[in-house]
């Protein structure tokens, strides 16, 4: 005599759930195939640059406050950072046997100050070129 519950369980197990759509797989690929360290590098550098820009502005304002009265009083009006251009190169083997991927990131920083009284502008344009090695995890 067969167990009717077992029969239904076997019948259930033979049903084939619908496969996930290609769109879902593509969404997973966007999250799991994206090199996280690349994003991390850019975010870290952006944060560092923002801090540097803030320090520069603070120093400028402070120093400007003790200058001659007639000297231009520049006010910061814009800080721009271009979209980084990221290049990935072939992985290389390090001296300790581990692997790393060389990455080159280039971008430009543009900072602009204006003095409303004299209607003058001060623009600082700085190209940046950083080269780094991202450790690769091997299993």
């Amino acid at each position: 005599m067969t167990d009717p519950d077992h029969d239904i369980e076997q019948a259930l197990a033979s049903l084939r759930p619908r496969a996930p759509s290609p769109a879902l797989t593509a969404r997973l690929a966007a999250e799991l195939d994206a090199p996280a360290s690349r994003r991390g590098v850019i975010i870290a550098w952006s944060a560092g640059l923002s801090a540097a820009a803030a320090a520069l502005v603070a120093a400028f304002v402070f120093l400007g406050g003790v200058g001659e009265p007639e000297a231009p009083a520049y006010q910061l009006v814009r800080v721009e950072q271009s979209r980084p251009d990221v290049q990935f190169f072939r992985p290389v083997q390090m001296d300790d046997g581990s692997f790393a991927r060389p990455v080159r990131v280039r971008w430009q920083d543009t900072t602009r100050w204006e003095d409303a009284r004299s209607n003058t502008r001060l623009i600082n344009y700085r190209p940046n070129d950083q080269f780094t090695l991202l450790p690769l995890e091997t299993n």
């Binding site: 084939r16 759930p17 496969a19 996930p20 797989t25 997973l28 799991l32």
Partner: peptide
């Protein structure tokens, strides 16, 4: 647990996980 590629793992188990 191993270093298997996620695509292969998902291809094998994705349908039942989605259910």
């Amino acid at each position: 647990h191993s270093g298997q590629d996620w695509r292969a793992w998902f291809a094998e188990h994705g349908a039942r996980l989605r259910l």
